[in-house]
Design a protein around this nucleic acid. Structure first.
Length: 935
RNA sequence: AGGCGGGUAGCUCAGUUGGCAGAGCGUCGCCUUUACACGGCGAAUGUCGCAGGUUCGACCCCUGUCCCGCCUACCA
């Protein structure tokens, strides 16, 4: 007895272990360049490097989708004869990891700064060795066929070498510089952040209008509008627009800075916008990037008023010192109010930037930082991607060496590259690659080198190494190079670089993909991959993108292992979003008994099946049961054939010739194979899955299996074996086509199918090349498309649909269906009458004349259907008549249009004429039929 | 503010040389028929966001407009 369901919870770990034990994920050559799989000696490489997940991370739906795509490509190409390599690894995630460990230290009552750099870093390593590969283990649960022997980490020694090498080269080429600039500053983590580590969102705030009295007449004042009164201590001027007549007389005068009494000038600068606020803007160069530029234009020295943690520093009046920026704001406002200098307070919506890590509002801070000059790198990257610079900017003029999928991202890519800004790469944390620069303590001279320079070694007390580490992305941008050993000339690098495909979420097109392109071109002269596949972001059923902080994410392990109601509520409780109650209620209502596991295959299937080229894909837990149902359908469809194979005892002798239905199924398989191959090339995975779904459910199970049943149960072994041969061989190809998407269930079925087919010697043509499906070959179509065959089978299918539909409408009183057909159609149907009867709810016979007491059902079908009518038959006819009349009217209207008949192509007009004639005939028959029934 | 997507059945989405709108899920009937009830068979379901234009003909091309999502910039 074949089990009714695939026991994925038992099978998945077992199958994965087997793949690993048999080295199924390995490449032709090991990383030393030794041949380890002779069968792939001359195979072309197909290489993907994983976007390294953060070591503090846990698997989420975005990973699930992205890694399913990578695995499906890797498996398909591996089966198709490529030397497929998928390099896994993790990212050290500087700030995130340091934060995790700091929290741990805090909990133990240990002060990180007191602990010191060396010991803290040691503890972080400890943490990463213990927990840092959790997410990779989760990838195994999903079935990912990574080459684990090549697992890399962005802080590995080799990768550190790559980081230093690239830093030194860029510094020597003048593309890295150090300078005082305004940076995004996180006061909690006390570090600079790059633009993309800042999350901006509109928030409600207040705008304050503050009076700055004139120096020579304190009864007069200029009103400055600001959202950040606490920074006024750092004001070095107030600016008005040079064209603003209201204030023209003020330019050149001085005002007195409230609360502090410092005298500052009124200047004229384009930056001041007469339309905004009062038209007077305070200039605070140390705390605003735009003001910084204004300050430079007017040679004003910035005044920094805050400490690293955003408390006020010694520059401000004593009573403000040490106050947090917001406490300072409140106090300043109170005092301004008392002094009568706060003219107005208005509600105001403004975009607040928050650290992606600490979630606290960032501060703009003037500090010494390291930067990469991006302009030259961007131009090189654009040129390599097929863009040319012309009179009206950059245009895509040729395919280039890089294809983005979907291609509409070309525009986005261009837009970003042509508006690029320099990249701040220094971070004031300890966990990361330390910048290889040394400062002379007295002269300030800077040395940059791969190793500690000789001069530093000679006089260590004169030099200090830069304390800062590099932005995590500074190691990520080298990832495709460094995982293969760059800058060393390794065998791995020779064979597997550049890679083939990069698959990633679209939101990191800029700060990761583009930068990898820069690095590849700059350091190796080639782009690091040929194709970039950018997948959609995953949203919940309401269209909100899934995220940990919103509590609306689906944990992939919930799908693989199942979850209780409590477990389902946990992420919501952790996130504490504003709509928490509502979310919890929804969970309780939808999943009172938790969620039953659906398995990794079902998860993968649903993800791939749901991919669209739109911006995001909406998913909810119940959607994944569709994937489970599909897996079960496949399981049972295969099980039906397996049962018959196992039961077959006749091992040789004649085999009946293939039927037309067999040939049709093979043709459908060919067609499906062609579509799958095309979709793999076009990165159209959703379509591939839909095509496979249709083939499994409709072609293989609903038609193929049903049609073959009469022969599978035949007394004649030649018939049985003919049916088994076709159905078993088609199943084998079907498993091959499905394997990249649903690897577990297909591998399991393969292990059941192949021994039986071998035992019976029933392979149609190509015997499997491997005991393991993962190593077998990807199918190729056997024949050209066969339209005539499809037409003929279509008629048989129509006949079956017709009798089913008529039967279900309750139109038949009793007795058989009799089909009276033209000779051609009759010939067709005769050959399939046994199969038609297998699928018909009522016996179908073919005859030359209608039996007495029957009616002929009027339809456009090629044969007339006769049966003894029931009263409900009238309803059926009336409905048909109504529909027919409607269609006829529309055809007639079209033909009545003179312009249509004159201008439309002749074939189109003829088609409508034909349709009109057919409908007229049918309607006449329907009306006659209804009359004869006395209505 | 600019850029990029999207708006098609109750829901999620397909829909390329412009020619009578499709799938899956859900719904409704019937069926526990010997692969599968995580199933079978059948049925119903649409101002294709709105308004113009081009065309014999527009879901499709053009213009405008309104919503939604994402990205970039700015917000005194």
């Amino acid at each position: 007895m074949f089990p009714k369901r695939f026991d994925y919870q038992e099978a998945e770990p077992r199958i994965y272990r087997r793949w690993k034990d048999e080295n199924a994920f390995r490449t032709a050559y090991d990383s030393q360049g030794n041949l380890q799989d002779p069968s792939r000696k001359d195979a072309r490489p197909f290489v993907i490097v994983i976007p390294p997940p953060n070591i503090t991370g846990r698997l989420h739906m975005g990973h699930a989708l992205n890694n399913t795509v990578q695995d499906l490509l890797t498996r398909a190409k591996r089966m198709d004869g490529y030397d497929a390599l998928w390099v896994p690894g993790t990212d050290h995630a500087g700030i995130a990891t340091q934060t995790v460990v700091k929290k741990q230290l805090d909990a133990e009552g240990i002060d990180m700064r007191a602990l010191g750099r060396e010991e803290t870093v040691r503890r972080i390593w400890e943490w990463r060795n213990k927990y840092g590969s959790a997410i990779l283990n989760q990838l195994e649960r999903m079935g990912c066929s990574c080459d684990w022997s090549r697992t890399r980490f962005t802080m590995d020694e080799g990768l550190n070498r790559a980081v230093r090498e690239s830093f030194v080269r860029l510094y020597q080429d003048g593309l890295i510089y150090r300078g005082k600039r305004i940076v995004n500053w996180c006061p909690v983590d006390r570090t600079a952040l790059s633009d993309d580590e800042v999350e901006k969102e509109d928030e409600k705030g207040k705008m304050y209008h503050i009076r700055y009295p004139l120096q020579d007449d304190s009864t007069q004042y200029m009103v400055v509008a600001t959202t950040r009164p606490e920074t006024l201590f750092g004001d070095v001027a107030v600016a008005v627009n040079p064209k603003d007549e209201r204030y023209a007389a003020m330019v050149g005068k001085n005002v007195v800075l409230p609360l502090q009494g410092r005298v500052i000038p009124v200047i004229a600068d384009e930056w001041a916008d007469p339309e905004k606020g009062t038209g007077v803007v305070k200039i605070t160069p140390a705390h605003d990037p735009n003001d910084f530029e204004v300050g430079q234009r007017h040679e004003l020295t910035p005044i920094n008023v805050m400490n690293e943690d955003a408390t006020m520093n010694e520059v401000v009046p004593e009573r403000y010192r040490g106050l947090d920026r917001y406490a300072c704001r409140r106090k300043a406002l109170e005092e301004l109010e008392e002094l009568g200098l706060l003219e107005e307070t208005k509600d105001h919506v403004l975009a607040i930037g928050r650290s992606y890590r600490s979630k606290q509002p960032i501060e703009f801070r003037l500090s010494d930082q390291w930067f990469v000059k991006m302009g030259p790198l961007a131009e090189q990257a654009l040129a390599a991607s097929g863009f040319t610079k012309g009179g009206d900017g950059w245009q895509k003029t040729e395919p280039g060496d890089l294809s983005l999928h979907p291609s509409r991202f070309d525009k986005v890519y261009l837009h970003w590259l042509s508006n690029i800004r320099d990249w701040c790469i220094s971070r004031q944390i300890w966990w990361g690659h330390r910048i290889p620069a040394w400062f002379h303590k007295e002269t300030g001279e800077i040395l940059v080198d791969l190793e500690e320079p000789a001069r530093v070694k000679a006089e260590p007390e004169q030099w200090r190494q830069e304390e800062d580490v590099l932005d995590t992305w500074f190691s990520s941008w080298l990832w495709p190079l460094s995982v293969f050993g760059w800058p060393e000339k390794t065998p791995d690098f020779d064979r597997y670089y550049p890679t083939t495909v990069l698959s990633t979420a679209k939101d990191i097109l800029f700060f990761w993909v583009a930068r990898m392109n820069f690095a590849g071109l700059r350091f190796d002269g080639r782009l690091p991959y040929r194709h970039v596949y950018l997948h959609s972001t995953i949203a919940d059923e309401t269209g909100t993108t899934m995220s940990k902080s919103k509590g609306n994410g689906i944990d992939p392990l919930t799908l693989i292992d199942g979850a209780t109601l409590e477990a389902l509520k946990q992420p919501v409780m952790d996130a504490r979003p504003s709509n928490m109650k509502e979310l919890l209620k929804r969970v309780e209502k939808n999943f009172p008994n938790g969620f039953e596991a659906v398995g990794a295959d079902a998860m993968r299937w649903t993800l791939i099946y749901s991919i669209t080229e739109g911006e995001n894909v909406r998913l909810s837990l119940p959607r994944f049961t569709e994937g489970r149902n599909f897996v079960t359908k496949l399981w049972n469809g295969a099980g039906r054939i397996l049962t018959s194979l196992e039961a077959e005892t006749v091992l040789d002798g004649p085999i009946a010739p293939m039927t037309e239905e067999d040939q049709w199924l093979l043709a459908r398989l060919d067609s499906t194979t062609r579509v799958c191959r095309a979709c793999l090339e076009d990165f159209d995975f959703g379509k591939m899955a839909q095509e496979l779904y249709h083939f499994v459910w409709d072609d293989y199970c609903s038609w193929g299996l049903e049609w073959s049943k009469t022969r599978l149960t035949s007394q004649d072994p030649a018939e049985r074996r003919a049916a088994l041969k076709v159905m078993g061989s088609v199943l084998a190809d079907l498993l091959r086509l499905l394997h990249p998407v649903v690897p577990f269930v297909t591998e399991e079925l393969w292990s059941l199918l192949v021994p039986q087919m071998n035992r019976l010697g029933l392979w149609l043509d190509d015997r499997p090349s491997s005991e393991l499906l993962i190593r077998d070959h990807y199918p190729k179509p056997r024949k050209e498309p066969q339209l005539e065959l499809e037409r003929r089978i279509g008629i048989k299918q129509d006949a079956i649909s017709l009798v089913r539909s008529v039967e279900a409408s309750g139109s038949v009183e009793s007795g058989d269906f009799t089909l009276v057909a033209t000779p051609e159609v009759k010939g067709l149907l005769e050959g399939a009458i046994r199969e038609i009867n297998q699928l018909s709810p009522r016996k179908v016979v073919l005859a030359d004349r209608a039996p007495a007491g029957t009616v002929a059902y009027p339809s456009a079908f090629a044969a007339a259907l006769h049966f003894v009518p029931a009263p409900a038959y009238v309803e059926r006819l009336k409905k048909d008549l109504e529909k027919g009349k409607k269609d006829l009217a529309s055809s007639q209207a079209q033909l009545a249009n003179q312009s249509f008949v004159e201008r439309a192509p002749k074939e189109k007009v003829d088609e409508i004429r034909r349709r009109e004639a057919e409908l007229t005939t049918t309607i006449t028959k329907l009306e006659a039929e209804l009359r004869s029934l006395g209505t």
